[in-house]
């Protein structure tokens, strides 16, 4: 009995050590990149001036909006940022950071049409975006001001740099439609297959002006 008890303890220790050892690489992989990376360029002279948004159209699963609201500021008679990609269901904070009154509205035809009224400096208003798509933002007091909220299904997107380059990290392995949105270009899409731990390169060319 004593022998069998001893052997059970030893067996248990061996199993525990083995289990711990087997978990080390798994944990390490979890802490590293669980998916792949999509890297590439949007080849158009427009992207130097008008940033493009590159995003995966649909990814399986539900994605929860961030706890901290995305923020759109009005300062110096300019919307900042100019393009704000958000997850569906996100509530955006709109702040008037100027010394003059502002308005924010999205015209009919926008994915979400709304009007926040006219309000003074220091005021914060919010709007929730539940419909996928493009939401142009305008200010009825300052007609030159405009920006875009782009409502997306998943968090796998990136804005291009001045050279048109982009990189989307941590994409779950699988096959997708990679799309671009740019205020001056017609939408375009490319199929892309992402492999865990690997970089997939995509180049958008021959893009057509709106």
């Amino acid at each position: 009995m004593k022998k069998s008890m001893k052997s059970m303890v030893i067996s248990g220790l061996v199993c525990s050590i083995a289990l711990c050892l087997s978990l080390i690489p798994l944990t390490g992989r979890a802490q590293q990149d669980p998916g792949g990376t999509i890297k590439g360029t949007v080849d158009s002279p427009f992207v130097q001036r008008y940033q493009a948004l590159v995003y995966i159209d649909q990814v399986k699963g539900d994605f929860t909006p961030p706890k901290e609201n995305p923020h759109m500021s009005q300062k110096g008679l300019v919307f900042e940022p100019h393009i704000l990609p958000v997850l569906k269901g996100s509530t955006v904070d709109f702040t008037n950071d100027d010394t003059v009154s502002h308005n924010v509205f999205a015209p009919p035809g926008a994915a979400t049409s709304f009007n926040l009224g006219i309000y003074g400096p220091g005021v914060k208003k919010t709007e929730t975006f539940d419909t996928l798509g493009e939401v142009p933002l305008l200010c009825s007091v300052h007609p030159e001001m405009y920006a875009y909220v782009i409502v997306l299904q998943n968090p796998y997107f990136a804005l291009t740099d001045v050279n048109g380059g982009f990189e989307i990290k941590n994409v779950p392995p699988g096959s997708y439609q990679l799309k671009i949105w740019d205020e001056k270009l017609k939408p375009a899409a490319k199929p892309v297959t992402v492999t865990a731990g690997k970089i997939t390169t995509v180049e958008f060319k021959n893009l057509v002006e709106n």
């Binding site: 003059v100 709304f114 009007n115 926040l116 009224g117 006219i118 309000y119 003074g120």
Partner: peptide, 9 residues
């Protein structure tokens, strides 16, 4: 002083 106007749906 500031100009204001109500918004909403």
């Amino acid at each position: 002083g500031q100009t204001s106007a109500a918004g909403g749906v």
